[in-house]
C-alpha cells in the first residue's frame, strides 16, 4: 500500500486512528484477562485452597474415605454406562439423519436436542413419575421387587437422559459435510455394508466421535440436578461424587467437600485437555478434507 497519493491530513488522521486502535486493543485484552481471572480462575483457586486448608493429609483422608470411593465408583458406573449407550445412539442417529432424506427429519433432529432444553430437575422428575412408588409403573415394579428410582438404575437413566444429544450433535454436521461418496466408492469396490462402515465411515468420523464422547463424559460425570432427584441420597449406595460433595458441604465439612470437589476439578481439567486435543484434530480433518 502506498500513502503517496493520500492527502497529508487523511494519513495523519489514519495514524491517529491506528494509535487509538492500539490503545483500545490493549484495554480490551486487559478486560478479557480480568474477566478470565475473576470469573474462571478465582473459583478454581478457591476450590484447591479450601481443599488444602488443613494440609494434604486431610485432603487424602477425604477422598480416600469409603463413602467417597463408593461415590466415585457409582459416578464411574454412570459414566461407563451412559457414554457407550449414547455413543451407539449418536452414531445411529447421525447415520440416518446425514445419509438419507425422509419426512420429519427436522422434527427428529429437534427431538434429539430436546434434553438440552429440559431442566435437569425435570429430567429427574419424569423418571420418578414413571418408576417411583406412586408412578405409572410403580406398582408393577414393586410387585416384582425391582427398584429403579432412589437406586442405581434411576441414576443411570437420569444421566442417560441429560447426555442423549452430545455425540449425535457433534456427528451430524460432520457427516453431512463429508457426504456419502466415499461410502459409495467403497460399496462399488465390493465392500459390504459393515466393511464400508468399519473401514471408511468410522475412520472419517473418529475425531468427531472422540469430541462428542469427551463432552458426554464431562456432563455424565458432573450431572447434579437430575441425579439428585432420583437418588435416595444414601451414603455409600446411591451417592455420586457431586452428590457426595453436597452432603459433605451441608454437614459443614467444608474441607472434605472441597477435597472431593478438587478431585472433580482435576477430572474436569483432564477433560478440557482432551477436548482441546480432539478439537484440533477435528479442525485438521476439516481443513485437510478434499477440495
Amino acid at each position: 500500500m502506498s500513502s503517496v497519493s493520500l492527502p497529508a491530513t487523511a494519513s495523519a488522521s489514519a495514524k491517529a486512528a491506528r494509535r487509538g486502535n492500539a490503545l483500545g486493543r490493549r484495554l480490551l485484552i486487559l478486560a478479557a484477562w480480568l474477566v478470565f481471572a475473576l470469573f474462571l480462575l478465582l473459583p478454581l483457586v478457591i476450590v484447591v485452597s479450601e481443599a488444602l486448608k488443613q494440609g494434604v493429609g486431610t485432603f487424602f483422608t477425604a477422598i480416600l474415605e469409603p463413602d467417597a470411593l463408593a461415590a466415585l465408583k457409582l459416578t464411574l458406573l454412570a459414566v461407563g454406562l451412559s457414554v457407550p449407550l449414547n455413543l451407539v445412539f449418536g452414531v445411529a442417529a447421525a447415520w440416518c439423519v446425514s445419509k438419507y432424506e425422509f419426512r420429519g427429519k427436522s422434527l427428529l433432529v429437534t427431538l434429539i436436542d430436546l434434553p438440552f432444553s429440559v431442566s435437569p430437575v425435570i429430567a429427574g422428575l419424569i423418571y420418578v413419575l414413571l418408576f417411583g412408588a406412586q408412578g405409572y409403573f410403580g406398582e408393577w415394579l414393586s410387585d416384582r421387587d425391582i427398584q429403579i428410582v432412589f437406586a442405581v438404575p434411576g441414576i443411570v437413566l437420569a444421566t442417560l437422559f441429560v447426555t442423549v444429544p452430545f455425540v449425535a450433535r457433534e456427528l451430524i454436521p460432520l457427516m453431512q459435510e463429508q457426504g456419502s461418496t466415499e461410502e459409495e466408492a467403497a460399496r462399488l469396490l465390493g465392500a459390504s455394508g459393515w466393511q464400508m462402515f468399519r473401514h471408511i465411515t468410522l475412520p472419517n468420523i473418529r475425531w468427531g466421535l472422540v469430541y462428542g464422547v469427551v463432552l458426554c463424559t464431562a456432563r455424565a460425570m458432573g450431572e447434579f440436578g437430575a441425579v439428585s432427584v432420583v437418588s435416595g441420597h444414601i451414603r455409600g449406595l446411591t451417592n455420586t461424587l457431586p452428590l457426595h460433595v453436597e452432603i459433605l458441604y451441608n454437614e459443614y465439612n467444608h474441607v472434605a467437600a472441597f477435597s472431593v470437589a478438587s478431585l472433580l476439578l482435576a477430572l474436569a481439567l483432564v477433560i478440557l485437555l482432551l477436548k482441546q486435543w480432539s478439537e484440533s484434530r477435528l479442525a485438521h480433518l476439516r481443513t485437510g478434507a478434499q477440495p
Binding site: T181, E182, E184, A185, A186, R187, L188, L189, G190, A191, S192, H199, I200, N204, G288, A289, Q290, P291
Partner: peptide, 17 residues
Amino acid sequence: VRDRNVGFVFQHYALFR
C-alpha cells in the same frame, strides 16, 4: 452394487482421505 463389478470414478474422486 457390489455384484455388478463396475469401476466408477467420481467427479471429486472420493478417494479415502
